[in-house]
Computed example of a mutant assay.
Amino acid sequence: MLEGKVVAVTGAGRGVGREIALLCAKHGAAVVVNDPGVGGGGEGGDEGPAQETVNDIVAAGGKAWANLAFVNDPAGATSIIEDAVQRFGRIDAVVNNAGILRDTIWHKMSHEDWRAVIDVHLNGTFNVSKAATPYFREQQSGSFIHFTSTSGLIGNVGQANYSAAKLGIVGLSQSIALDMARAGVRSNCIAPFAWSRMTASIPAETPEQKQRVERLKTMSADKIAPLVVYLASDASQEVTNQIFSVRKNEIVLYNKPRPIRSMTKLEGWTPESIADELIPAFKPSFARADEVSAHVFPYDPI
């Protein structure tokens, strides 16, 4: 599916990113494996994970190069794309998978934890995508594959920073898809369900939370990779501006927010008429106030 292609995968030293890099290489792509080897909250650094993924690809007969840059640094993000072009001659797909978590209930969230998560997820996605854009425009082709989350699409407790970043990525992807369509460039999002180092930090205190964690443990990271390979390939040339999820062997397509009800009052609305007329009419269509992904996906994937 990816013979002759060059793919850059961020956060590819472990978990979902590693599985994506391995499968892209198996399908013929040369892969830039980006991972600074930080901890789940963005602390530290270790070249081991990226190099190990590269070593495994090369041992299997593939082509890969390790990049240790931080995606939240514009110069570092640029180096990821430059490594692809200098080492392998081009760049065909960017997989924005890198991320950290600093989960805290809203009233205890610090400015530092807010900025750190936004910087890696949202700004990091912007930085790497921006660096690849001139090459995509010049060759009139390319694929952006961004990782969002049901924490942003649906909501989750204790993840205001992560949820905001992940829904922001959806908006970014949509704008990229619209702005780059004339250049033949695609931009799509994937919300993965998989047990990894990041999801291992999800609180599991209540029976419902424990049930959710146990369900996640059955969803392996390698199940996400086939959709990424497809979206990076020429076979997906007509697929852009979409949001997908992968849950084990289930692939989900999301709709975008669209109006579901409207009501017009010719004389105009007052606060009282909103309370007496509008809200009772709208209330049957209200989203559940405490909704999280477990309410939307209450069943176990096969």
Rank of each mutant, 00 (worst) to 15 (best):
G152K: 05
K166L: 11
K26N: 00
E52G: 11
G61Y: 04
V95Y: 02
S273P: 02
N55F: 01
T125D: 11
H27G: 00
P36R: 02
T150I: 14
L231P: 02
I91P: 00
G45Y: 05
F193A: 10
T125M: 11
G76A: 12
E19R: 04
E52H: 07
D46G: 01
S233C: 06
G41C: 05
N188P: 04
A64R: 00
N127I: 07
H111G: 11
I302F: 09
D222G: 02
H107V: 07
V252N: 05
D234L: 01
E19K: 05
L172Y: 15
K210E: 14
I20Q: 01
L266V: 13
L68M: 14
F70C: 10
A160E: 04
V32M: 00
P298M: 09
E52Y: 03
G171Q: 09
Y299Q: 12
T206A: 14
E250R: 13
E208T: 12
N72P: 03
V128R: 04
R182N: 14
M1E: 04
A221Q: 08
A93Q: 01
L2E: 00
G4M: 00
V128W: 05
V58C: 08
L253A: 15
A281I: 04
V38M: 07
A177G: 09
A294Q: 11
E138M: 08
P284K: 06
S110M: 09
R197K: 11
R186N: 11
W106V: 07
E214I: 03
K63I: 01
Q237L: 10
E272D: 12
I154H: 06
N55H: 12
L216Y: 15
Q159E: 12
G155Y: 03
W106D: 11
G44E: 06
Q86L: 06
D103Q: 09
M219Q: 15
R90N: 13
V128Q: 06
